[in-house]
Computed example of a mutant assay.
Amino acid sequence: MDDLVQFLRARLDEGRANVQSAIDTSEPNVGDWELADLDSKRQIVDYVARELEDHGADNPWWYDDKLLPILRLLALPYADHPGYRPEWRPTD
């Protein structure tokens, strides 16, 4: 799970840097919405990671079943990235 979280954070940070660069160069049709979208995804990743970490081995049995798929779905758009792992692909 830690590798998946790190992967997602890195991709979202890259995306944010790209959007910010486009904004800084006044590229049309790029702006606050794209930043808000990336920031909200980052908040979801951080929330899920925190929930999974906070309880450690005491996580309820359903945590992995319910929370890990959220991270896998967020990673799916990056499936063509060389760092993406096949085991992260959603199962459902």
Rank of each mutant, 00 (worst) to 15 (best):
G31Q: 03
H55Y: 13
P86M: 14
L68K: 14
A49T: 01
E27Q: 06
W33H: 11
Q43E: 15
W62N: 00
S40M: 11
P77V: 10
D39H: 05
V45H: 02
R50H: 15
E34C: 07
Y78K: 04
Y47W: 11
R50G: 06
N59T: 05
A79R: 13
A75H: 02
R72C: 08
G31L: 00
D46L: 00
D65E: 14
D54S: 14
L76M: 13
D46T: 10
W88E: 04
Y84H: 04
R72M: 14
K66V: 11
L71Y: 04
P69D: 02
D58F: 04
L73F: 11
Q43M: 13
L68C: 08
K41I: 07
D37Q: 10
Q43L: 14
E51G: 12
E27D: 12
E34F: 01
Y47A: 15
D64E: 05
R42Q: 11
A36C: 12
A36T: 15
N59A: 00
D54H: 04
D65Y: 15
E87W: 01
P60I: 09
E51M: 13
D64G: 11
A57P: 09
L52V: 09
N59L: 01
P69E: 08
L73E: 13
T25W: 13
D37V: 10
D46G: 05
L67C: 03
E51L: 12
V30R: 08
D54A: 07
D64L: 08
W62R: 03
L38D: 02
Q43F: 11
L52A: 03
L38N: 02
E51T: 12
D65P: 03
D37A: 06
H81E: 08
D24L: 03
L74R: 03
D46E: 11
T25L: 07
R50P: 01
D24K: 08
W88D: 05
V45S: 06
D54T: 04
D58R: 01
E51I: 07
R89Y: 09
L35Q: 02
A36D: 13
D64C: 08
H81G: 11
P86N: 13
A36G: 09
W88P: 00
R42A: 08
G56S: 05
E53F: 13
R85M: 14
R85A: 09
A75L: 00
D58P: 06
L71W: 04
E53C: 06
S40D: 09
W62C: 03
V30Y: 06
L67Q: 04
Y78V: 06
L38C: 06
L52R: 04
L71T: 06
K66C: 12
I70V: 09
E87M: 03
L76I: 07
A36P: 10
Q43V: 12
R72D: 08
R42F: 09
Y78M: 05
Y78Q: 04
R50T: 15
L35M: 06
P28S: 13
D46N: 07
L73W: 11
D80N: 10
D58A: 12
P77I: 13
A75V: 00
I44P: 04
E87K: 01
W88K: 07
D80C: 07
A79P: 00
D37G: 00
D80R: 07
G56Q: 01
V48I: 06
L35A: 00
